[in-house]
Amino acid sequence: MGVTLVFGAGDFSVTLGGFAVGGIGTATLAAILLYQLLGLRRRDPVTMPLDGGSGRH
């Protein structure tokens, strides 16, 4: 999370060819990339608890 905050607050920009992504765009891409990379080491899939009042199990 710290990396994405620094990218967003520092207005970090990346230019690939004629396409430029700056600030919040770069922070969003970094967050998605880090989430996926760090999730590769996870053994068990993340499960969300179901709402108790929904009746689903």
Rank of each mutant, 00 (worst) to 15 (best):
Q36P: 00
I24E: 14
V6G: 09
M48W: 11
H57G: 09
T26M: 07
G23T: 06
D51L: 09
D11Q: 00
G23W: 02
G39C: 03
V14K: 11
G23D: 00
R42Q: 06
V14N: 08
T15D: 14
D11C: 01
T28Y: 10
L50W: 03
G23Y: 05
G10T: 03
P45D: 07
L50E: 00
A20S: 15
T26V: 04
G53W: 06
L5P: 00
G55Q: 03
G55K: 08
A9H: 04
R41W: 13
A9K: 11
D51K: 07
G25M: 00
R41F: 14
A30M: 08
S13H: 11
A30N: 01
G55R: 00
A9Y: 02
G2E: 13
R41H: 12
G22H: 08
T4V: 01
R41K: 15
D11G: 05
G22I: 02
R42D: 05
M1A: 12
V46L: 14
A20N: 15
D51C: 10
G23N: 04
L40D: 05
R43H: 13
L50R: 02
L34Q: 06
P49A: 05
R42C: 03
G22W: 02
G18A: 09
R43W: 09
T28A: 15
T4L: 00
D11T: 02
Q36R: 13
L38K: 09
S13V: 09
V6K: 10
R41L: 14
S13K: 14
R43N: 14
T47D: 13
P45E: 09
V3N: 05
T28S: 13
G25A: 00
T15L: 11
L50Y: 06
L38I: 09
H57L: 10
G52I: 11
V21K: 02
G23A: 07
Q36L: 15
Y35N: 12
D44F: 13
F19L: 11
L33W: 01
T4H: 04
D11W: 04
L34D: 03
V6Y: 07
G18E: 10
L34R: 06
G25V: 02
L16M: 13
L40A: 03
V6T: 11
M48E: 15
G23C: 04
M48S: 15
G18N: 11
L29I: 01
V3E: 08
